[in-house]
Design a protein around this nucleic acid. Structure first.
Lengths: 211, 211
DNA sequence: CCCGCAGTTGACTGACCAGTCAATCCGGGA
DNA sequence: TCCCGGATTGACTGGTCAGTCAACTGCGGG
């Protein structure tokens, strides 16, 4: 799998790591290939020895990480735990991805997930896979009766993922305080909002009674 | 307010409308200023008579629309209706913005809201205003007891807005079917998910009872 | 009738940058 | 030792555009 010479894969890895830093700092468009090469301490041309284009670097960054995430979601979905726990595990995984490599997650969210006309469309199907898996979790929750049937699994999946992405975006752009405590609180808050809802049931019951 | 000569404001308006079409078609980056001028049937240079730069056109497009939306949210928040109805009204307004001018909403979502490193950051404060207003609705719902207090208003606002944006994104990229019926269903589905939650309370109560 | 100016035109410039390529380096096998 | 081929280098090219500017038009006031 790994080429015999360490330096070969080594430099490739260095370029990839440098690209994360460079893309995260200035954004994909504003970042020049020479920025990546400089950051990696490598000659300009070497970037094109390992990658066909600047785009391919971003694609690689995204796909490597996204496939790991998809595998995790699929595995989680297959387990025999309550659907609410599954959603919590998925929210936790995504948030921890950000916690342990914020620059890479920033690049993936900002430059791929959220950048429609350029890269998003190239990976629409890959992204949709995640929605489908999450939707299946919701559907099976409805089938066993732990989730109600008012909301279609598809919408629920979008709402769930959308909430997570919005919170990540808040961290990425410094609109929300970061920290281990905030990360863990966010996991619970998202799941509590989507699963538990905002409505206070006792209040609701009271007002229904009073009618 | 309107300049005496119709043609002056007229051309400006034509350029703005053409920009919406051009940005929506190819994306802000891929779209050249000449594309806008062509679309508007106007000379290249005239674009620079009315706007300082290509960026300023996008800014104008965004701010004009966003201010209308902010005003609507503020007005809705001030009314004396249940918080759940307020959230429904806001979701409806955003979705109807898309329904009646999909190209403009696409540009705003894709090129401003979702395009961090370039434009998003320039308008972070404007965008945050919406979050704050929505958060206040949630907070007042908690104060009157119709919303429970487990979730912080700030997170609830992010989740609510995130769910809407995700659904809009689904329409924009053709991942979700569009249509009047879908639009109305989405409004209810989003509010039902965020307010009502996915959990089936009767199931929950039953399993608690059985313990 | 002429002047002035806002509105309008489009060719041109200057900068930028992705991607190319010919040259060089260097390790290992014969 | 010599040769081969992958790794590495960075100057250079080609094309793309945002933004400039000098020139033209036509209307309204003097």
């Amino acid at each position: 799998m790994v080429p015999p010479r360490a330096s070969g894969g080594d430099k490739r890895r260095m370029i990839l790591d440098a690209a994360v830093v460079a893309f995260a700092r200035r954004g994909f468009h504003a970042c020049r290939v020479s920025d990546i090469a400089d950051e990696a301490n490598v000659a300009y041309g070497l970037v094109y020895h390992y990658f066909r284009s600047k785009d391919e670097i971003l694609d690689t960054l995204f796909l490597d990480r996204w496939n790991v995430l998809l595998a995790f979601i699929a595995q989680t979905a297959a387990e025999r735990t309550p659907p609410r726990d599954k959603l919590h595990a998925i929210a936790a995984a995504i948030i921890d991805f950000y916690r342990y490599d914020p620059a890479l997650m920033k690049v993936i969210i900002v430059e791929v997930m959220r950048s429609a006309n350029t890269f998003g469309l190239r990976h629409t199907d890959k992204i949709a896979e995640a929605y489908v898996l999450i939707g299946e979790i919701v559907a099976s929750g409805q089938a066993t009766g732990s989730f109600k049937r008012e909301v279609s699994p598809r919408f629920a999946a979008l709402a769930f993922y959308g909430a997570i992405e919005q919170v990540l975006t808040g961290w990425i752009f410094g609109m929300l305080p970061e920290g281990d405590e905030e990360f863990d609180r966010a996991k619970s808050a998202i799941v509590e909002t989507i699963c538990g809802g905002l409505d206070d049931m006792s209040y609701r019951a009271a007002s229904v009674r009073s009618v």
